[in-house]
């Protein structure tokens, strides 16, 4: 539409130059800690004070230490974390999607006050109720030890139950954007609620399902206070608890091993983000603009 005289072109070039200059600064700020930890992980010096960005003679000794060090069963922790995060995510996802469907598609008495209280209750930080959570899990475990203290099942229940509120809202908000005409015409065709949900609505929910599962996976994977409280045995703990315990010790002297562990622990989440970036951004902004 608009013409491109040479002066405009020049100012565009200048614009491009300062934009890229700024971009370099921003990129440095954003990736420096990552570069630093990568460098620390391959630096055999293993000491915070003597670390350089480009280590003198690099190697994978720190990673080897992670496998062999008996005090830190790192890969058991990693496995625990992955299992706990996966199962809680699947549970949260199915529970919230079903509930959100009811809130989005049915009109019933108490709907508004239920939605409001879900939202309000959600703002109570889980952390403050940690004594209560501990007590509940202990008492449940006294009857069914499978779900008691020091079990992954108990922790998964706590995570899934605690994450309901905001996810129901996110999911319901997204469902509301799907026109109800679609399901009404399906109902006229004789489809049951379940058919409408599973055949019509569910396939359309893919973006928000991806967003909620990623957020929930990352949230549970990164949580450490509740995990530390409920899981007391070393072999049962998660990788975040493990790393946190690691830093409580003399970690400036074991900086290299910590770096190696941190890097491996961060890897699953980083991979998810880089692969699913577009869906995350799409979903986040959908959820964001809505509202």
């Amino acid at each position: 539409m608009s013409k491109h005289p040479s002066s405009v072109k020049r100012s565009q070039t200048i614009g491009l130059v300062w934009r890229w200059a700024l971009a370099v600064v921003l990129i440095l700020f954003s990736i420096f800690p990552v570069l630093w930890i990568v460098s620390a992980s391959i630096n055999p010096v293993n000491d915070l004070a003597n670390q350089k960005l480009i280590p003198d003679n690099w190697g994978f000794d720190n990673f080897r230490q992670l496998v062999t060090n008996p005090i830190f069963p790192f890969f058991t922790w990693l496995k625990n974390s992955l299992i706990i995060a996966t199962v809680s995510t699947l549970l949260t996802l199915s529970l919230t999607t079903l509930a959100a469907f009811a809130f989005s598609r049915f009109r019933f008495r108490g709907r508004q006050s239920m939605l409001k209280s879900i939202l309000l209750i959600q703002s109570f930080p889980n952390l403050l109720a940690i004594v209560a959570l501990f007590t509940i899990i202990k008492q449940i475990g006294d009857v069914v030890p499978l779900f008691g203290l020091n079990t992954h099942a108990g922790l998964i229940l706590v995570y899934s139950g605690g994450a309901m509120g905001m996810n129901i809202w996110l999911m319901k908000g997204y469902m509301d954007t799907i026109p109800r005409d679609i399901d009404e015409s399906a109902h006229v065709d004789g489809a049951t609620d379940w058919e409408v949900f599973s055949k019509l609505i569910l396939p359309l929910l893919r973006p928000i399902l991806v967003v909620i599962s990623i957020l929930s996976f990352i949230g549970t994977y990164g949580e450490f206070i509740i995990a530390r409280t409920l899981l007391t045995q070393r072999e049962m703990q998660t990788v975040m608890v493990g790393l946190q315990i690691f830093t409580a010790g003399q970690y400036t002297k074991n900086w290299g091993i910590f770096a190696a562990g941190a890097l491996i622990a961060a890897l699953p989440i980083m991979i998810i983000y880089l692969i699913l970036q577009d869906q995350i951004v799409g979903g986040l902004t959908q959820g964001a603009v809505k509202g």
Binding site: P33, F224, M240, L243, Y251, M270, L274
Partner: peptide, 27 residues
């Protein structure tokens, strides 16, 4: 590239920053 801070579990990066800010030894 700019998304990277968001892609690492925050506890891990907080602990990394703690090491970087270490007044005597940190980078």
């Amino acid at each position: 590239l700019l998304l990277i801070p968001y892609t690492i579990p925050s506890l891990i990066t907080i602990l990394i920053w703690r090491g970087m800010f270490n007044p005597d030894l940190g980078v």
